[in-house]
Simulated scan of single mutants.
Amino acid sequence: MARYALGVEYDGGDFLGWQRLSKPGEPGDETVQQALETALSFVAATQVDTVCAGRTDAGVHGVCNVVHFDTDVQRDVRGWVLGTTSRLPPSISIRWCVPVADDFHARFSAIARRYRYRILNRAVRPALARRYVTWERIPLDVDAMNIAAQALVGEHDFNAFRTVHCQAPHARRDLQSIAFRRDGDEVWMDVRANAFLHHMVRNIVGSLVLVGRGERPPAWIAELLAGRDRTLAGPTAPPTGLSFLGPLYPGLFGLPDEVTA
């Protein structure tokens, strides 16, 4: 058996999230994993199962999610990339394929994961970018959001920022960096952590937007973190503005630079 890693790009707007459904759904109830495994299985002429670095929610996009799969089928990397992409819907493509060692694991070998959240901050709603940004008409104070967000850096219990449906055994995560910046009408948040809880990024954004609007002081974020009470935090931000930039791995695995720490 050989093991391969794939870099997968997708527009999450057409899917019910990454993870395949335990039972077949109605037409249109497709997930990214289902579409990917169907295409890989066609190329391999046998069932192929995948493991991913990050299971994104419905509507969340992937810039370079990483998966691995095992197979005894002989195909060159060009065949895996082009053959699989030719069987995928237009909203998914394979960016690259790399043979990896047996001890590589798309999820457990990752040392960090990175997300970006894009907010269109103007008086008029978006038309062209509506699938990839979240609209906020009230002017945001990016400096206040940056100051507030730094309270989240470090290893903490993030219970205040995870959904009640989160199945993680504990809420401790190491948030390594978080920063906001403005580019014209857009406000971007880039965040990196060893791992994330269910809805953690979107819940953080929902609370920090309240700070940006001036409805809460920057110190409020630290109070939420210490209080560990999700009911006191801000709303969950919409999925449309969120993209999974991808995981990071140690250099020993020989993966492309964009996913190597």
Score class of each variant (00 low, 15 high):
residue 82 L to N: 12
residue 129 A to Q: 02
residue 165 H to Q: 14
residue 55 R to K: 10
residue 74 Q to Y: 08
residue 68 H to R: 09
residue 79 G to D: 05
residue 137 R to F: 03
residue 156 H to F: 07
residue 79 G to T: 14
residue 118 R to A: 14
residue 61 H to W: 00
residue 85 T to E: 11
residue 91 S to A: 15
residue 99 P to Q: 15
residue 157 D to Q: 02
residue 135 W to R: 03
residue 160 A to R: 13
residue 75 R to V: 08
residue 122 R to G: 05
residue 124 V to N: 03
residue 57 D to G: 04
residue 117 Y to L: 07
residue 53 A to T: 06
residue 113 R to F: 01
residue 144 A to R: 09
residue 151 A to S: 15
residue 94 I to V: 15
residue 53 A to V: 09
residue 120 L to H: 01
residue 47 Q to I: 03
residue 164 V to F: 04
residue 46 T to E: 15
residue 102 D to K: 14
residue 92 I to R: 09
residue 148 A to M: 05
residue 60 V to C: 07
residue 54 G to H: 01
residue 79 G to Y: 10
residue 107 R to K: 13
residue 94 I to N: 09
residue 116 R to C: 14
residue 63 V to M: 11
residue 90 P to I: 12
residue 146 N to D: 15
residue 167 Q to T: 13
residue 96 W to E: 06
residue 98 V to H: 03
residue 120 L to M: 09
residue 45 A to E: 09
residue 146 N to C: 11
residue 59 G to Q: 06
residue 72 D to T: 08
residue 126 P to D: 03
residue 49 D to L: 15
residue 58 A to R: 12
residue 80 W to I: 12
residue 61 H to K: 07
residue 134 T to E: 07
residue 54 G to V: 08
residue 86 S to F: 00
residue 66 V to T: 13
residue 117 Y to C: 07
residue 80 W to Y: 04
residue 118 R to Q: 08
residue 138 I to Q: 13
residue 93 S to M: 12
residue 46 T to L: 02
residue 66 V to P: 00
residue 51 V to G: 02
residue 90 P to W: 08
residue 168 A to Q: 09
residue 146 N to A: 09
residue 157 D to S: 05
residue 101 A to E: 05
residue 140 L to W: 00
residue 152 L to D: 05
residue 51 V to M: 09
